[in-house]
Design a protein around this nucleic acid. Structure first.
Lengths: 210, 210
DNA sequence: CAATTTCGATACGTTCAAGTTTCGCAACAG
DNA sequence: CTGTTGCGAAACTTGAACGTATCGAAATTG
């Protein structure tokens, strides 16, 4: 696949630089990660940051939205492997992945765009919500549903509500929590509070809030 | 206080129109409520929407940030009266107030700016976080702390975590929940799920998730 | 080597909003 | 009435970014 491909005849001439393409996408993601909204993103800023001529950008993407969509699409969402032992453990793994993503500026792009530009660029959002966000949500839903099935969770539990509570709590911390890095035991504390509930519950099973 | 105030001698000349000032602030809030970020807000758009000359705006505010800050400051946060009977009831009242605010475009300004422009306009955010958001957070904290004191809530409960879980869940719904108006029983369902917890708990006290 | 295509850089004309100034009219004090 | 100040509208200058075009150099094919 790497050499000698007579089927797709190379059209002769200098080939497009993959390095330039990567630099453009990196620059785009960097700028978004630094808090720049899609609306404020300027092609000139991207070109300057990437050390690339504007021509090189326009040769590849006809408009900003396409570029941003492609850039965001490169952010794979490698879901963490779940132990499958207990609902508590798996939820902690999933929330901890969220926490670590939030700590990485690069992955914060997704959140920034999802939060800031959701209203203004619905198609853009829709496109990558499916590839980046929905799989993670589904993983949480699956774990909760499994817990209901096995009896670890109460049968009245609304799966979607569980998702909202768990991910809402983590997002709240990333956005409005005390400044600085999120504490390492944050995921564990969230899960324990949510699973056990706030209300007094004498016969509670094993689960240990710090 | 309304007539005859020789202390502050009126400086002679046409007085500034309060109507114009109100129109400017209303236009600003409207535009923000319609999803326009602070960065995209243009003075010309505000002037046009308010039916006002740009001069009239610049005569009062030297820059956009000051105008937005003043506009947001006019959004009072009338906290709903709490029954004080049970923690559950009071939390439902508070979350329901959040839900109703989210339904009103005008109050959505606060959320929009807090979510979208938090990183870019830190001073602006700080200024009105205190007057609009913090009182509501504190009300939730107070109710939770009261519950811990009275024994309605478990003694291990972290008050700040409870706040994050409850408000995070409501915000999650307003931003990423199914489109359309939020269901009327949303606050109740959130509170019941959070108080009772997701985990199986045989000796659970009275509380009835739908 | 010659032809072709991309490269980064730069220049160009256009559009849009910012922020300032000017103008004629309206409102108020003395 | 006269002087002063605010009013909305419009013209104006400035600056940023757009999207296109052009340049010499570099890379690749035949």
């Amino acid at each position: 696949m790497t050499i000698q491909e007579p089927a797709t005849a190379r059209p002769a001439g200098r080939p497009r630089s993959e390095k330039a393409e990567k630099a453009i996408i990196d620059a785009t993601l960097d700028l978004i990660a630094e808090g720049m909204g899609v609306a404020e993103l300027s092609i000139e800023a991207i070109a300057s940051r990437a050390g690339v001529g504007k021509t090189t950008i326009y040769r590849r993407w006809s408009n900003k939205e396409d570029l941003v969509a492609d850039a965001l699409a490169t952010l794979k969402a490698p879901l963490p492997p779940l132990g499958g032992v207990s609902v508590r453990d798996d939820l902690i793994i999933l929330l901890n992945a969220m926490r670590e993503d939030a700590a990485d500026a690069r992955n914060r792009c997704v959140m920034n765009v999802a939060m800031n530009d959701a209203d203004r660029y619905p198609r853009l959002l829709e496109r990558f919500l499916k590839v980046a966000v929905e799989p993670r949500r589904q993983a949480v839903r699956d774990v909760i549903a499994r817990g209901v099935a096995t009896g670890e969770l109460r049968p009245e539990v609304d799966v979607e509500m569980g998702l909202a509570i768990l991910s809402g709590a983590m997002i709240w911390h990333t956005k409005w929590g005390p400044a600085g890095d999120l504490p390492e035991d944050l995921a564990e504390r969230i899960v324990d509070h949510v699973l056990l509930g706030l209300a007094t519950c004498p016969g509670a099973p094993a689960a240990r809030p710090a």
